[in-house]
Nucleic acid binder design. Structure first.
Length: 602
RNA sequence: GGGGACGUAGUUCAGUUGGUUAGAACGCUGCCCUGUCACGGCAGAGGUCGCGGGUUCGAGUCCCGUCGUCCCCGCCA
């Protein structure tokens, strides 16, 4: 391998095969860096020593594939290259074979500046030759392997489930596959193997996992691809804590595989708390929480503030703190709230911001100190007070969420100053995990005017909330229904503000499952027609069970320090869900369509 | 569906107030060079300024449309 030679090998014969990474032609002396996935080695062609082979080497160009036979030699001290692992040796070429030539590539893998992503994706095979991509793909392999090994050792079976299955209720849009044998009918690609893994529990495979591709036809983001890989698992008879333990176990193994020792158990926080403190159900714990400072106002100044901002006297006032943002000009301060997700979410329309410390000190001199103290503000920190406009129809949670977005926008803008997103080498700081628990069971869907399952309709609820469920059947089309207060036995694992995975304890009794469908405004007949097979299965002795699924791509992305899933997926799709290399999707022939009984509207 | 950024040589970019022949670096071609390692030196080739339309005496530059890539909102049980 091209990255393997060491001083101890000097004098040995070696055969290296790989690409010409760089050539340095000094005339009678030619150096070639030969590269494969393991690294690079310098090969020397000396005209004096061997004119024939030297002449052949003159014809070498970037990205030619060659085989070199030679003798490894320790370099003399002042010619050592400390930048590469093989820098203390070189290969004295004795035989050179050109295995294949290369056209001039649109860009070179050895180039330090990246071409734009369109180019990288179109010529992905060249892009993947680059060090970082080779590293990321290797990392992905190691992480997946570590997880497989861990789960297998814990008694989990990896079991495959169908890709061609039936369209699932609710959730994301399905990718559909037309049936030729039954024209007009379609398979759907799984958004997740949810029902199959529950069926596996009913089938007695009490510990299941699968590293499996899932498909969702929704718009893409940097951390969302239409096909992505989940670490999916399910087990019988667990408390949530047991599921968390398994996840913490395989994440420990996965992080160890990439050289990081993480600490378990992860901290836990309820959904309500996460919303109040971070304005998000996936809090980024690397940054300070938001603090409600309303009680730190003096009574008089609270009145004054409420009047000035036209809010009721018991207003919620969140202080968002960005540490060490340093001096910020008035002009810059006025742009707060005009960029990023906060502006996009129309936060400015119902959230008022106060971000001028001088003005605040002037108008509320007696409250300043207690407020800054309550929020832990230190010199050099940027802080913004956010209050909800009185006439707003937005819910308290929407207010928290919007403030949470502002918190992230600001943190991103001043990342270079506070440095909380930079890797320190200390896993306890670099990787802030948290379990978010007790999600709401249902969420109101304004468009369809009914309640939806927040997680999915097979999620269990807290025993104590059962009464609320049973008393709410008359209010299933009321946005103020008590359904909104029911807590699910659902949990997310979050890392640095990214949702890694989501799971729950499932419903294992048919009578409770029916009640959930009723709450979702579904009649018995509708439920039967949509997943009758599943309801029937529940009636044949279903053990209590629960599980979770984690995004492998996201885990690897964070470990790789990448900003996009495309850096850890060999063949990803663009924001318009196009594969630029193979040019998919494409129209298909009339004949193909006809066979499937499909007519395309133009 | 909506908002924003970008699109100039093979690649990464610069291109002033609209003004004569559109530049640089890397890559490419040729020549020189025996210790380079992002080798160096000399010479050279390489451009439908994404595409279409408009304004203008004159458009890479201004306007409209369109296509593509990226980021975000909506969406993502």
């Amino acid at each position: 391998m091209c990255g393997a030679l060491r001083p101890a090998d000097s004098g040995k014969k070696a055969v290296l095969m790989g690409w010409v990474n760089r050539r340095r032609d000094l005339g009678n002396l030619i150096f070639i860096d030969i590269r494969d996935r393991s690294g690079v080695t310098q090969v020397v062609f000396n005209k004096e020593r061997d004119p024939a082979i030297h002449q052949k080497a003159e014809g070498l160009r970037n990205e030619y594939v060659i085989a070199v036979v030679g003798t490894a030699k320790q370099r003399v001290p002042d010619t050592v290259n400390k930048n590469i692992a093989t820098g203390e040796v070189e290969l004295i070429a004795e035989e050179l074979r050109i295995l294949n030539e290369s056209k001039q590539p649109p860009f070179l893998p050895s180039e330090t500046v990246l071409p734009n992503e369109e180019m990288r994706l179109k010529y992905r095979y060249i892009d993947l030759r680059r060090d970082t991509m080779q590293y990321n793909i290797e990392l992905r392999h190691k992480v997946a392997l570590a997880i497989r090994d861990y789960l297998s050792a814990q008694g989990f079976f990896e079991i495959e489930t169908p890709f061609m299955t039936r369209s699932t209720p609710e959730g994301a849009r399905d990718y559909l596959v037309p049936s030729r044998v039954q024209p007009g009918s379609f398979y759907a690609l799984p958004q997740s193997p949810q029902m199959f893994k529950q069926i596996l529990m009913i089938s007695g495979f009490d510990k299941y996992f699968q590293i499996v591709r899932c498909f969702r036809d929704e718009d893409l983001r940097a951390d969302r691809q239409p096909e992505f890989t989940q670490i999916d698992l399910e087990m019988s008879y667990p408390q949530p804590e047991r599921v968390w333990e398994v996840v913490e176990g395989f994440l420990t193994a996965a992080f160890k595989a990439s050289g990081h020792e993480i600490k378990t158990p992860f901290p836990r926080m309820s959904y309500d708390e996460a919303m109040r403190l971070y304005g998000s159900d996936k809090p980024d714990m690397r940054l300070p929480a938001m603090v409600d400072v309303r009680s730190a106002f003096t009574p008089e100044e609270r009145e004054k503030f409420a009047a000035a901002f036209k809010v009721s006297p018991d207003f919620t006032s969140l202080l968002i703190r960005i540490p060490k943002a340093g001096d910020i000009s008035g002009t810059e301060r006025r742009t707060i709230g005009t960029y990023g997700a906060f502006a996009h979410s129309q936060g400015t329309s119902f959230v008022s911001l106060m971000s001028d410390p001088n003005r605040f000190a002037r108008d509320y001199p007696n409250s300043l100190e207690p407020i800054l103290k309550a929020a832990g503000v230190e010199a050099g920190d940027l802080w913004v007070l956010a209050v909800r406009k009185a006439d707003s129809r937005q819910s308290a949670n929407q207010f928290y969420q919007t403030c949470g977005q502002l918190r992230l926008d600001l943190a991103q803008k001043y990342a270079a100053k506070h440095g909380f997103f930079a890797k320190t080498g200390d896993p306890a700081k670099d990787y802030r995990f948290i379990w978010v628990t007790d999600f709401p069971m249902f969420e109101w869907d304004r468009e369809s005017g009914r309640w939806n399952a927040a997680h999915h309709p097979f999620t269990s609820l807290h025993d104590e909330d059962m009464a609320k469920l049973e008393s709410s059947f008359d209010t299933t089309s009321d946005p103020k229904s008590a359904l909104g207060e029911i807590r699910a036995l659902a949990y997310d694992v979050v890392l640095n503000g990214t949702e890694l995975g989501s799971g729950s304890i499932r419903i294992h009794r048919q009578d409770i499952q029916s009640k959930i469908f009723r709450a979702l405004g579904m009649t018995e007949e509708e439920a039967r027609s949509r997943f009758g097979f599943f309801l029937e299965a529940l009636e044949y002795g279903t053990p209590p069970h629960g599980g979770i699924a984690l995004g492998l791509d996201r885990i690897v992305m964070i470990l790789a320090g990448a900003d996009s899933l495309r850096e850890v997926i060999p063949f990803p799709k663009t924001a318009r869900a196009v594969d630029l290399m193979v040019d998919a999707p494409t129209p298909v022939s009339e004949a193909q369509l006809k066979e499937l009984g499909i007519e395309v509207k133009k």
